[in-house]
Simulated scan of single mutants.
Amino acid sequence: MPIPPLPLVMTEPLVRAALLEDLGRAGDITTDAIVPADATARVALVARQPGVVAGLDLALQAFRLIDPRIEVAVERPDGSTLLRGDVIATLAGPARGLLTAERVALNFLCHLSGVASATARIVAAVHGTRAAICCTRKTMPGLRAVQKYAVRVGGGSNHRFGLDDAVLIKDNHIAIAGGIPAALERARAHSGHMVKIELEVDSLAQLQEALDLGVDAVLLDNMPPPVLREAVAMVGRRAITEASGRITPETAGEIAATGVDLISIGWLTHSATVLDIGLDHCG
């Protein structure tokens, strides 16, 4: 099912800020010096390696904000699987606008396609299990909404979007509160009836304590697969189970086979490798 694009009101400020950062105080002095004001060109966004497209809307906004006369023909929208050499979109219009917007457009497109492509690889690695792949709050400042969007494009799911939409009680909360019972009691007293509560545990003893007290979800942190399997059996569908901690495409399948509901991975957003996409001149 196609993922709906993010509203323009959310994405345009990001693109506009990136363009302003790049244009500085004098604009594109290289292009303005070399390219005649009336020159036109036709270019294509081309995949240089296989992957999944994400962030095309932001890339195209960059071109249109610089020069609304640029015309676009989309060949492979967000969510499309790419092979090397595939044309994602073609653009035609004022050459200065095409060149000035190029880097900002590619920065968004390559990065977000990299997030989507990495997510798709992990999703493929757990195919046939119940586990969903989800991201975390380990996002780059200012880019959380679009990075989480790219995860969805790649077939993954989103964890909480911030500190305000769910309670996640971690080890430091427990230590400062004086234990799991105190932390849970305070969280319940403070939270509204629509707010879910998840508790991080790193041992089966902590997990049993959490289950006795009742939680909506448990974050099983850095547990090896044999322990994860035992933890899932202990939970017995009484709470959502989430595995986390240094998970890779090579280890995801074994972790998913333990029966966990979610596998959360921070590097999908904070360290995903960009997908190599270029802007090629077509004449």
Rank of each mutant, 00 (worst) to 15 (best):
91 L>P: 08
230 E>S: 14
135 C>Y: 00
13 P>M: 13
86 D>M: 11
273 T>M: 11
181 P>L: 02
114 G>D: 06
14 L>A: 05
13 P>S: 11
235 V>Q: 01
61 Q>R: 13
76 R>I: 02
92 A>Q: 13
63 F>Y: 15
32 D>V: 12
20 L>H: 14
217 A>V: 07
269 T>F: 06
182 A>F: 04
63 F>P: 02
164 D>Q: 08
283 G>E: 02
142 G>P: 02
195 V>T: 15
37 A>C: 11
143 L>G: 04
130 R>A: 15
186 R>W: 03
137 R>G: 12
63 F>C: 04
231 A>E: 07
178 G>D: 06
219 L>P: 01
156 G>I: 05
162 G>N: 15
173 H>M: 09
86 D>C: 12
99 L>P: 07
223 M>F: 09
75 E>W: 03
9 V>W: 08
85 G>V: 09
36 P>A: 13
197 I>P: 06
250 E>K: 10
230 E>H: 06
281 H>E: 11
150 A>C: 10
264 S>N: 01
177 A>M: 08
267 W>R: 13
219 L>D: 00
239 A>E: 02
233 A>Y: 00
189 A>C: 04
56 L>M: 08
119 T>P: 06
130 R>W: 11
168 L>M: 15
182 A>W: 07
245 G>M: 05
239 A>C: 06
164 D>C: 12
40 T>E: 14
267 W>L: 11
196 K>P: 10
90 T>E: 09
39 A>R: 15
3 I>Y: 00
263 I>M: 12
165 D>A: 12
162 G>K: 03
143 L>F: 13
164 D>H: 14
265 I>H: 10
276 D>A: 04
213 L>A: 11
89 A>S: 10
2 P>I: 07
79 G>H: 01
271 S>W: 00
54 A>S: 13
107 N>R: 05
110 C>F: 02
243 A>N: 06
283 G>I: 02
83 L>P: 00
244 S>N: 03
133 I>G: 01
160 R>L: 06
74 V>S: 01
261 D>Q: 13
206 Q>H: 09
256 A>S: 06
161 F>I: 11
232 V>Y: 02
245 G>P: 05
272 A>M: 01
281 H>T: 13
17 A>F: 08
59 A>L: 07
58 L>G: 05
162 G>D: 13
73 A>Q: 13
142 G>W: 11
25 R>T: 13
36 P>D: 08
24 G>S: 10
257 A>M: 02
33 A>Y: 06
169 I>Q: 04
142 G>F: 05
16 R>C: 06
193 H>E: 14
17 A>M: 09
156 G>W: 07
145 A>P: 00
54 A>F: 03
102 E>V: 07
27 G>F: 00
20 L>V: 15
148 K>E: 05
241 T>V: 10
66 I>A: 07
153 V>H: 05
160 R>C: 08
78 D>N: 13
138 K>V: 03
2 P>H: 06
